[in-house]
Amino acid sequence: MTGFARADGSNERAQWVVEARSVNGKGRDLRCRLPAGLDGVEPAIRTAVEARLTRGNVNVAVNLTRLENAGALRINRDLLAQVLELARDIGGPDAPPPAIDTLLSVRGVIDSAEPRETEEDRQALEQAIAATVATAIDRLVEARTGEGAHLAAVLLDHLAEIERLTDAAAATSSLQPEALRAKLRGQIQALLDAVPPVAEDRLAQEAALLISKADVREELDRLRAHISQARTMLRDGGAVGRRLDFLCQEFNREANTLCSKSADVELTRIGMELKAVIEQFREQVQNIE
């Protein structure tokens, strides 16, 4: 399932933004992008994602800005002395001293006296970022839930179409009792009239095979059972993507058997249309958790 979420935070030393994205995936794959020195945040990210998401390719990025300007400016006097000594060497003892603005423009003469970060500071920063990550994941779940509600409606529409086609298959004239009996009588009579004659045990086997191939009621009953099971999964909610994935295989199995048994143009047409709708259902199932 796709989704995007963003959360930010700050303390007296830094500001940060957490962005969480997810796209469709059969399993759960997490990738983290963290600032240097904050690898300790990754376990918290993994814990938050694994607790809330079971499927999808998830990317979590943390962008950190340290408040460097909070430190006081200081002059690097050792470097300044070296610059003055070099100026005297080049200009000679009678040369005027360099201008102040020229000296201050030399890289490194003025820098920011950054406050020293302790281990406690680092740990506090990681904990604060981890809390922001949890907020971002919560918002990502909300976004995915909204998409899931839309997909559930789409899947229910597909199930309604599968049910309609199943009922249409059951209602075809070739599956009506009298049509089945007439078809079987003709096929068995052809076996009886065969030259050379078919042995009785072989005749019984062929008749049983013809009857089993002509009867697709089991396939239709299983299709209806699968439809009911899929609707129950969607109604109950939760992480049902993989179970629906398996159910799609069962839908396909019954539709393929229906087509292979069919000796009627109308029933074959319905079976092919049924397979097309099942494939559409399967494609949408790939998008849910």
Rank of each mutant, 00 (worst) to 15 (best):
Q229G: 11
E120L: 09
G9C: 07
I188F: 05
A5P: 07
G40V: 04
E120W: 04
V198N: 01
C248A: 15
L151Y: 06
V240M: 06
A168C: 00
R77Y: 03
T2M: 08
L220N: 01
A208Y: 05
P35N: 11
D39H: 06
D221Y: 02
I211T: 14
I270L: 15
D8Y: 02
S212P: 01
M233F: 15
D39C: 02
L203V: 05
I45W: 09
D39W: 03
R28Y: 11
L67F: 01
E163A: 15
N256C: 00
L234Y: 12
E178K: 10
A7N: 07
I110Y: 01
R185I: 10
D8C: 00
D215K: 04
T166G: 10
N11G: 14
Q286T: 09
P177W: 06
A81C: 04
R107N: 09
D89Q: 15
A230V: 12
E19R: 11
R253A: 05
L53Q: 06
R21S: 12
R139S: 08
G271D: 05
E250N: 01
R31M: 04
L267H: 09
A113K: 07
D221S: 07
V62F: 07
R282L: 09
L247K: 05
R253Q: 08
N252K: 00
E161V: 12
F281P: 02
E117Q: 14
A239V: 09
R222D: 05
R31H: 15
A214R: 03
E119N: 06
R242H: 13
L67D: 09
A149S: 12
A149V: 13
G37E: 04
L151H: 03
E219L: 05
A207G: 02
G71H: 07
A128L: 07
I110M: 14
Q123V: 09
I137N: 00
S22C: 13
R217E: 13
G108H: 10
G91S: 02
T132P: 01
R88D: 06
A214K: 01
P98S: 09
A124R: 13
D89M: 10
Q176L: 12
E219D: 06
P43M: 08
A207K: 11
T166F: 00
V109A: 09
P97E: 14
H158E: 13
E42G: 05
I129P: 03
I162H: 05
R46A: 08
A171M: 06
V154D: 15
T118Q: 06
M1L: 10
L73R: 12
V60T: 08
G56K: 07
R217I: 02
A95D: 08
A149N: 10
E218N: 03
E147V: 10
R13L: 13
F4H: 15
M272H: 12
E283L: 07
F246Q: 10
K275A: 03
R181I: 11
T257N: 09
N256L: 12
R217D: 15
Q127K: 12
Q286P: 02
Q284C: 04
Q15T: 15
G146V: 01
A7K: 05
L64K: 02
E200S: 12
A204H: 10
P197W: 08
Q82Y: 03
E200W: 01
D167Q: 13
R66D: 12
H226A: 10
R282Q: 08
A179H: 11
S212C: 01
T268S: 13
R222E: 10
G27M: 01
T47R: 14
R6A: 05
